[in-house]
Amino acid sequence: MEWKIELVVLPVTDVDRAKEFYTRVGFHADFDESPSAEVRFVQLTPPGSGCSIAVGKGITDAAPGSVQGMLMVVPSAEQAYQQLVAAGVEATPVKDEGWGLFTYFADPDGNKWSVQQLPARG
């Protein structure tokens, strides 16, 4: 039996601001629905990813900005860094951590992301 992680909820204070941020970074806006006045669900997916994020209203009790350690893998950390900076995101310059090249950024609420270029294998 396969078990797949396909969605991670990120707590945010402003759903529209979060949606704008993640689409500006390059995530695809897959879904945005409000089945009731108390609930809004927005699903966003990074290009090429099998896992999406969700932001919204009434979908988590976690504190906005409390998520740390979200990690995306990319072919080029430098290209990811340049794309983030071009999108107006404060990202750290690429750093060799010994187990890959990394750049780091946070969304407007402070949810923290790592972007990793895996080391060459062989």
Rank of each mutant, 00 (worst) to 15 (best):
E2T: 12
W3R: 13
E6V: 10
E6W: 05
E6P: 01
E6R: 08
E6C: 11
L7C: 04
L7G: 00
V8M: 14
V8G: 08
V8E: 09
V9P: 02
V9A: 08
L10T: 01
L10R: 04
P11G: 04
V12E: 00
V12S: 01
T13S: 15
D14R: 04
D14F: 08
V15N: 09
D16Y: 03
R17H: 06
A18Y: 01
A18N: 09
A18M: 07
F21G: 02
T23P: 06
F27N: 06
F27W: 14
H28A: 15
H28L: 12
F31P: 04
D32N: 12
E33K: 04
E33I: 05
S34I: 03
S36F: 12
V39Y: 02
V39T: 13
F41A: 00
F41R: 05
F41S: 02
Q43T: 11
Q43E: 14
Q43D: 09
T45I: 01
T45L: 07
P46E: 07
G48L: 11
G48W: 05
S49R: 08
G50D: 15
G50A: 15
G50C: 12
S52P: 05
I53P: 06
I53S: 00
I53M: 08
I53L: 08
A54Q: 00
G56T: 06
G56K: 02
G56Y: 04
K57S: 11
K57C: 03
G58N: 09
I59A: 01
D61V: 12
D61P: 07
D61T: 15
A62W: 01
A62P: 04
A63G: 11
A63D: 14
G65R: 04
S66G: 12
G69I: 02
M70R: 01
M70D: 03
M72R: 10
M72P: 01
V74G: 07
S76H: 08
E78Y: 11
A80V: 05
A80K: 00
Y81A: 10
Y81M: 09
Q82T: 13
Q83M: 07
L84N: 02
A86Y: 10
A86M: 09
E90R: 08
E90L: 08
T92I: 07
P93Q: 10
P93T: 06
V94C: 14
D96I: 10
D96M: 14
G98D: 14
G98H: 14
G98Y: 15
W99K: 06
G100F: 03
G100K: 05
L101H: 07
L101G: 00
L101S: 12
F102H: 13
T103H: 03
Y104W: 12
A106D: 02
A106T: 12
A106Q: 10
A106C: 13
D107C: 01
D107T: 05
D107E: 12
P108D: 02
N111G: 04
K112M: 03
K112Q: 10
W113Q: 01
S114M: 08
Q116M: 13
P119L: 07
P119E: 13
P119N: 12
A120M: 09
R121Y: 09
R121M: 11
R121K: 14
